[in-house]
């Protein structure tokens, strides 16, 4: 770890609230340590703005270790920036060079309203889960956990699908602002596990319906979502979602 110092030009989306018009503002930053994370770089910018009487840039973040799904912005056209399988909070400045210009914008989609600057409203994702992303089981009376053996392969694949952090990069990356990768993660997880089978049909139908209702676009196999996903969720899950949906639609009562 030998840290260098770099100088950067930032062009950051500034928008006071959902109704206001937004625009890019330009700032320069000097002596940024390459050991900093991207969000720590934004902290430095904000400290600088604050002390010069300007409003800091609003951005969502919390865990800063790539798991809560709060952070996210489009950096030079790429959700979460240039590194694969990396959330913005885990991106480090050693991936940039002195003199670089970084254009930083919010995750844009019809279903994601801008709250302020880089903060967007992603509650549409919650609405989709509420439509069926669960197993209907109340607390109490669950059988012994080992009563239901599940093959290691299925458990691992279900875990691959369940690794989604709900950040919305897939939507921001998609030219149609579709949420198929997000929806497929949950549908796939529960289709791979026996616990999910009783409600399989309704789940696929209801979650897809909710997705459409929230204003997400259609999937046209652009595969941008997979490339942008910080958790490497595969579009194979979209294939499984499509199968689940078709089976459900064909077996309609």
């Amino acid at each position: 770890m030998s840290a260098e110092k770099i100088n950067l030009t930032l062009k950051v989306w500034r928008q006071k609230n959902s109704e206001a018009a937004g625009a890019l503002a330009t700032y320069t930053l000097r002596d940024i340590s390459t050991d900093m994370s991207f969000l720590e770089m934004l902290d430095v910018l904000n400290e600088q703005l604050l002390l010069t009487g300007e409003e800091p840039v609003a951005f969502d973040h919390d865990c800063r270790e790539g798991i809560c799904g709060m952070c996210g912005a489009v950096v030079n056209g790429r959700p979460h920036g240039p590194e694969r399988e990396t959330t913005l909070c885990q991106l480090h400045m050693r991936h940039f060079k002195s003199g670089d210009t970084l254009v930083i914008e919010p995750f844009r989609a019809r279903a994601f309203r801008v709250v302020r600057d880089l903060v967007v409203d992603r509650t549409a994702f919650d609405a989709i889960i509420q439509a069926g992303g669960y197993v209907s089981v109340n607390v109490g009376g669950a059988p012994d956990a080992n009563a239901l053996p599940i093959s290691q392969k299925n458990a691992e694949q279900a875990m691959d699908a369940a690794a989604c952090i709900g950040c919305g990069a897939c939507v921001a990356a998609c030219p149609n602002a579709a949420a198929m990768l997000f929806v497929s993660g949950k549908v796939s997880q529960l289709a791979l596990l026996p616990q999910g089978h009783p409600e399989r049909r309704e789940r696929a139908l209801n979650m897809v319906k909710a997705m459409d209702g929230q204003g997400f676009g259609n999937c046209t196999n652009e595969r941008e979502c997979e490339a942008a996903c910080p958790k490497a969720i595969s579009i194979r899950h979209i294939a499984r979602l499509n199968r689940e949906y078709l089976k459900a639609a064909l077996s309609g009562d």
């Binding site: 089981v137 669950a142 053996p149 290691q152 458990a155 997880q189 616990q195």
Partner: peptide, 16 residues
Amino acid sequence: DQCVAQGVPFAREYGG
């Protein structure tokens, strides 16, 4: 037991 019933994908042995 409750978490498994919800579909939490805990790690498994080869035998399931």
